[in-house]
Amino acid sequence: MTEIAKDSGLGRESLYKALKSGSKLRYDTVQRVLSALGVRLTIAPKAA
């Protein structure tokens, strides 16, 4: 968690608060965490 916080530019405690159950997660936070993990979110249309 410490490394993800560092790589995402977020504070460790802020990251814990953002990811706890019931929090209102912001898209910016999700994007930064996914980038720190080396993945990206892709949106595609549902298959017919």
Rank of each mutant, 00 (worst) to 15 (best):
L19C: 06
K46Y: 06
R12K: 13
K17G: 00
K6V: 03
L19N: 03
S35P: 03
T42S: 11
L15G: 00
G9S: 07
R12G: 03
S23Y: 13
E13C: 06
R32W: 07
L15Y: 03
K6A: 12
G22R: 09
R26H: 12
P45E: 15
G38S: 05
S21V: 13
Y27W: 15
K6Y: 10
Y16V: 01
S8H: 11
E13S: 12
A18V: 00
V33R: 01
D28A: 02
S35M: 03
V33Q: 02
S35C: 00
R12Y: 13
L19I: 07
S14L: 03
D7M: 11
L15T: 01
V33T: 02
A48Q: 03
R26Q: 13
T42R: 05
K17I: 00
M1L: 13
I4M: 10
G11P: 01
T42W: 08
E13I: 10
E13P: 01
E3S: 15
G11F: 13
G9P: 03
L15N: 04
L25S: 00
S21R: 14
L10Q: 06
S35I: 01
A47S: 13
V33E: 04
S23I: 04
E13N: 14
K46N: 06
T29F: 12
I4K: 02
L34Q: 04
S21L: 14
G38M: 11
T29E: 11
K17Q: 08
D7C: 14
V33C: 03
L37T: 07
L34W: 04
L34D: 00
S8L: 13
K24S: 12
L34C: 10
K24T: 05
L10F: 06
A5P: 04
K24Q: 13
V33K: 01
S14H: 03
V39K: 10
L41E: 02
K6H: 11
G9C: 09
G22C: 07
V39C: 10
S8D: 06
R32L: 08
A36M: 07
R12N: 09
S23G: 01
V39P: 05
S14K: 00
